[in-house]
C-alpha cells in the first residue's frame, strides 16, 4: 500500500467542496487562519452584547424589551457555538478569553461605536446584522465543517435580528418627526462604519488570498460590500431615509451602485484601539470577568468536593 499524501487528500477535499473535519489533517496555516477568524468572530458576538445591552433597561415597550433581551442572549449563544468550533481546532476557551481580555485578540470594530439612541438599536439590527449576514451566508459554505455548521444556525437567527432591526426603523421612520430624526441620525452615524465591516478593500486585504484559496471565504471584501450597498439602498428609500453619501449613484453599466469609500484612516485608527468605545468595551469585559472570578472558583471548589464525596462513598 502506498503512502497517503495527506496534503493531497486535503487539496482533493477542497476541490470536491467536501468539508474538512477536526480530525482530518490540515495545513498548519489553515488551522491558524481558522482559529484567528473563528475566535475573532466569537469575540465579536460577545462584545456585541454590550452596545445593544446598553438599551435593555430603556427599551420603550415591553415587547421591544423582550425582543432586545432575546436578541442579546442569541449573540451570547452564537459566541458559545463559535468558541466551541474554535476549540475543535486545538485552542482552549481560556486561551481565547485571555487574548480578548488582554487586548491581544481583535473583534469586529463596529462594536467600538456607541449606541446613543433607541434608533441605534434599530440601525445595528438593520445595518450591522445585515452586513454580518452577507458574510455569514458565505461562511455557511466554508470548508471547515464545524464553522460551516455553526454558521447555518447563526444565519437563521441573524436574519431574524435584521428584520427586528428594520421593524424598529420602520416604527421610527413612520412615527413622529422626532422619531424620524432619530432614525436618520442613526443611519448617518452607522452607514460608513457598517461598510468598513467587510474589511479593507481587496487591493489591501492581507488575509484574503489564503482564505479564498482554502475556501474559508468564498467572496472578496469588495464583492460583499457592493452586494450590501445594492440591497440596502432600496430599504432606506422605503423608509424615506437618506444614505449619507453624496457619491451614491446608480451605475447602469455595472447594474450596481457606485458609492464613496469609507474613511480607511478611521478604520485603521479604530482597529488600533482608538475608536470611541474600545477602552470602555474592554474595561467592561474585564470587570465582568474579574467580578465573576470568585463565582467560578466557588463552582470549581464545590464540584471538586462533590466529586471527592462521591468517590469516598
Amino acid at each position: 500500500m502506498g503512502r497517503v499524501n495527506v496534503e493531497e487528500v486535503f487539496e482533493a477535499k477542497l476541490a470536491k467542496n467536501d468539508f474538512i473535519e477536526p480530525k482530518d489533517w490540515m495545513p498548519e496555516n489553515y488551522r491558524k487562519h481558522l482559529i484567528r477568524q473563528i475566535s475573532q468572530h466569537a469575540h465579536s458576538e460577545i462584545l456585541g452584547m454590550l452596545p445593544e445591552g446598553n438599551w435593555i433597561s430603556r427599551a420603550p415597550s415591553l415587547r421591544a424589551k423582550l425582543v432586545l433581551l432575546a436578541k442579546v442572549q442569541d449573540e451570547g449563544g452564537h459566541g458559545l457555538y463559535l468558541y466551541t468550533a474554535a476549540e475543535s481546532l486545538g485552542i482552549s476557551r481560556d486561551e481565547m478569553l485571555n487574548a480578548l481580555l488582554t487586548g491581544k485578540a481583535k473583534y469586529s470594530s463596529i462594536f467600538n461605536y456607541p449606541t446613543l439612541s433607541w434608533a441605534d438599536v434599530g440601525a445595528v439590527g438593520w445595518l450591522v446584522d445585515g452586513a454580518a449576514i452577507m458574510n455569514q451566508v458565505m461562511l455557511q459554505r466554508s470548508s471547515y465543517g464545524p464553522y460551516s455548521r455553526a454558521m447555518v444556525r447563526i444565519c437563521k437567527e441573524e436574519s431574524f435580528h435584521q428584520r427586528q432591526g428594520y421593524e424598529i426603523m420602520t416604527h421610527l421612520s413612520f412615527g413622529t418627526p422626532e422619531q424620524k430624526a432619530m432614525a436618520q441620525d442613526a443611519l448617518n452615524r452607522w452607514w460608513f462604519p457598517t461598510l468598513m465591516m467587510f474589511g479593507p478593500p481587496d487591493r489591501e486585504s492581507p488575509n484574503s488570498e489564503n482564505a479564498l484559496k482554502w475556501r474559508i471565504k468564498r467572496e472578496t471584501n469588495d464583492q460583499l460590500r457592493q452586494r450590501f450597498v445594492n440591497q440596502t439602498v432600496i430599504q432606506a428609500e422605503y423608509l424615506g431615509l437618506t444614505i449619507p453619501d453624496k457619491g451614491l449613484v446608480w451605475n447602469e453599466a455595472k447594474k450596481a451602485y457606485d458609492f464613496s469609500e469609507p474613511d480607511w484612516a478611521e478604520f485603521k485608527n479604530v482597529i488600533k484601539g482608538n475608536g470611541p468605545c474600545n477602552k470602555e468595551r474592554l474595561v467592561s469585559r474585564n470587570k465582568s470577568h474579574k467580578d465573576g472570578e470568585w463565582v467560578r472558583a466557588a463552582a470549581a471548589a464545590y464540584g471538586k468536593k462533590q466529586m471527592e464525596a462521591s468517590l469516598a462513598a
Partner: peptide
Amino acid sequence: LSEWTGHGPFLEEDLALTNIALDIFGRAK
C-alpha cells in the same frame, strides 16, 4: 435581573440568567 445581561460571571451563566429574566418579563407583560 437583565442588568446582568452581558456582565455575567461566565458565558453560560450569563445566558441562563438572561433566560430567567426573559421568562419573568414575559409573565409581567
